[in-house]
């Protein structure tokens, strides 16, 4: 019985390092995804049609493609076009640009929720397109889009497990190492489950905090 817990103590540094890697990669990917998703959603509403088609194509492709394929293309296909990125960078950009397609759809539904009349009133007050987004649309839609955004970030955290396949030393990869070195099964996977749960719970709590702040 003592031995059972000993393994956890022994492998705590490895597992916590994995947790930290998962956390920072997901944090950066989420930020990138939100910014790129907002940009996509804004481009989706411009008058220039070819740009809109490009945005639609991007979103459709990303939503139809398994994340693993996208990561393989970036990581193993990148060097053939002179794009040599380390695994963590591929992780951030891969997860970020992948999530951007989903965030873009969330922003788009948010934009659509604002009554047309309010936008016309803003145009008559002389506001430019970007000013209308910043001062009229975004503040109102945050209440609406925060829950699905948080949900999407939680999915991102869980999907980040695939980064283990492209050798990123994140939580799943380190859990596998734990298994391989000790032939234990229960302790590594229970630890991984608890640590993922902690991370997801932290994101959910952050979401609740943001939700309270954006209410008006």
């Amino acid at each position: 019985m003592i031995q059972f817990f000993d393994l956890w103590v022994q492998y705590a540094p490895l597992m916590l390092a994995g947790l930290a890697t998962t956390a920072w990669i997901c944090a950066l990917a989420a930020m990138l995804g939100v910014v790129a998703g907002l940009a996509l959603a804004c481009l989706d509403s411009v008058a220039f049609a070819p740009l809109r088609w490009a945005v639609r194509a991007y979103i459709e492709i990303m939503r139809g493609l398994p994340i693993l394929i996208f990561l393989f293309v970036l990581y193993y296909g990148g060097p053939s076009v002179g794009l040599r990125l380390n695994a963590e960078t591929v992780g951030v950009f891969g997860l970020g640009f992948y999530a951007a397609a989903y965030f873009a759809e969330i922003f788009r539904s948010g934009f659509q929720s604002i009554p047309k009349g309010q936008i016309e009133a803003a145009r008559m007050a002389g506001l430019s397109g970007p000013q209308i987004i910043r001062h009229v649309k975004l503040p109102q839609m945050l209440v609406l889009i925060t829950p699905p955004m948080i949900n999407q970030i939680i999915i991102l955290v869980k999907e980040s497990a695939v980064l283990s396949i492209i050798t990123v030393a994140e939580l799943t990869k380190n859990t596998t190492q734990f298994v391989n070195e000790t032939y234990a099964v229960i302790q590594p996977y229970v630890a991984a489950a608890v640590l993922y749960w902690l991370l997801v719970e932290a994101v959910a709590q952050l979401g609740k905090f943001v939700e309270r702040r954006v209410r008006f």
Partner: peptide, 24 residues
């Protein structure tokens, strides 16, 4: 406008001053 089209997330004064601040 017929349906007022006020911005519900802003105070009355915020509604009245937004254009002044941003465009003038």
């Amino acid at each position: 406008f017929q349906h007022f089209n006020l911005w519900p997330h802003m105070t009355v004064l915020g509604n009245v001053t937004l254009g002044l601040r941003l465009t003038k």
